[in-house]
Simulated assay, not measured.
Amino acid sequence: MVLGAGAAAVALLAPGGAEAGGGAATSPPATATVERGDLTDTLTVSGVLGHGAEQPVINSAGGTLTALPAEGAVIGRGDELYEVDRDPVVLMYGPKPMHRTLELGVTDGADVRHLEKNLKALGHDLTVDDHFGLATLTAVREWQADTGLPVTGSVSKSQVVFLPGKVRVQALRASVAAPVRKGQTLLTVTGVERMVTVQLDAGRQRLAKKGAPVGLQLPGELELTGKIAKVGTVAKPAGDDGTSTVEVRITLDDPGKAGTLDQAPVSVELQSEIRRGVLSVPVEALLALREGGYGVEVVEGSSVRVVPVKAGVFAGGRVEVSGGDLREGMRVGVPGT
């Protein structure tokens, strides 16, 4: 009788060596060595190679759209995101969107500090604090003159967009010469770092640990490696079947090897379990025992005996085994090639 065990076919034997149905144990056609080492079980999931999640850029100016960047363009601090009525809308770095006009007399706040940090980074002389004072007013006027904005000394949402850092233009949502309104999404952006994004089943979140290495297979059988950079903590519905997912972001060890691929499907190999310093045998060495469980045929010279074992992790064509008197270096029976 033959039973399935993982990827192997196993014969039904009794302990001691007699095969079910009678007859003495005979020497197997081939043998393999019992090895001690680490085994890593893996799980393969699907991901997408890109630059991370898209984020909309919300317009706060009214008028005619007179300029847009190209898709794929990288925009940094102080650079123009787009242009309305020929006035640039500029990117500055900050953790939260701008919510009010910043000018002399405005109450102190973190948004003032973020504006001042940007102005200082752009080369203007001022002290960074929460207060919009005369030095801030002077720096704003200098910046507006340098940028080509009306020199008013006040900064509004129609002039500046705060985003966490440098961005890459993912998609355009409007056309030059079109009228635009406040609240309209004109373009979407992502981060600039190449990464793989996985929507992982929330029930498997434990398999994704920040800093853990992963294997990646890209189109064209290109194989790369990476590390888990971020694991989401909020599960989001994935469909009508009640399943939910968490987002996992993976950085590439060598982004240059990915070429120019964007939004490409990727197979991601996660390490689901690592067993260190365990005994293992080839999967095909496993035998199904008549009374249940598994065993292996231990070959010692001309002697062959079946030793019951407990099977553990399956990985890389081998299986962890324990129990009996198995030792590293023993020979076990396997099917002939």
Rank of each mutant, 00 (worst) to 15 (best):
T40I: 15
L43V: 03
L163D: 10
D201H: 09
L261I: 08
K117G: 11
A32K: 11
I75N: 01
V266F: 12
L126K: 05
T33K: 09
L115V: 00
K227D: 06
D130N: 13
G4A: 08
L104K: 11
L137F: 09
G94R: 14
K209N: 08
V307Q: 00
G76F: 13
P237H: 11
D241N: 13
A121P: 14
T243M: 03
G259S: 10
G183H: 07
I58Q: 13
E273K: 14
V57R: 07
L49M: 01
G183R: 10
G78Q: 10
G62T: 15
M330K: 13
A32Y: 06
R194H: 10
A8K: 00
R327F: 05
A202R: 09
I58M: 11
P95W: 04
R77M: 12
H51E: 13
P88N: 08
A235F: 06
T337D: 08
G52H: 07
R275P: 10
V140D: 02
K209D: 05
D146V: 01
K117C: 08
G323W: 14
G109I: 02
L39N: 06
V309C: 06
A264I: 12
V161S: 10
R249A: 12
V89K: 08
T251H: 06
E223D: 12
D87Y: 00
G316R: 04
V278G: 06
G239P: 04
D111H: 07
G50S: 11
I274M: 08
P335F: 02
P150E: 03
S302G: 14
T225G: 15
L200I: 04
P69S: 03
K257S: 07
L187H: 02
T42Q: 08
A14N: 04
R173Y: 06
V169E: 11
S322K: 12
S303R: 15
T260C: 05
A229T: 09
V57I: 11
G78R: 07
K230H: 15
G109P: 05
S322D: 14
V176N: 12
G16Y: 08
R206W: 01
P265D: 15
P219E: 15
V321K: 06
T233Q: 15
R100C: 07
V281D: 05
E221K: 02
G256A: 15
V296P: 00
A73P: 03
Q205F: 03
H99C: 02
E83V: 01
Q55R: 15
G109Q: 04
V2M: 00
V151P: 03
A212K: 12
A110Y: 12
V313M: 10
P28F: 00
S156M: 05
T26S: 14
G323R: 11
A258T: 04
V167L: 10
L187S: 00
E221N: 09
E71R: 13
D79R: 08
G76P: 13
T243I: 01
L270T: 12
K120D: 06
P15N: 04
A67P: 04
G78N: 06
E103T: 13
A171N: 10
V128Q: 11
G242K: 10
R194Q: 15
S267K: 15
R204S: 13
M195K: 14
S272N: 15
T107N: 07
L252E: 12
M92F: 15
D146K: 08
R276M: 11
G191D: 13
V180K: 12
L126I: 03
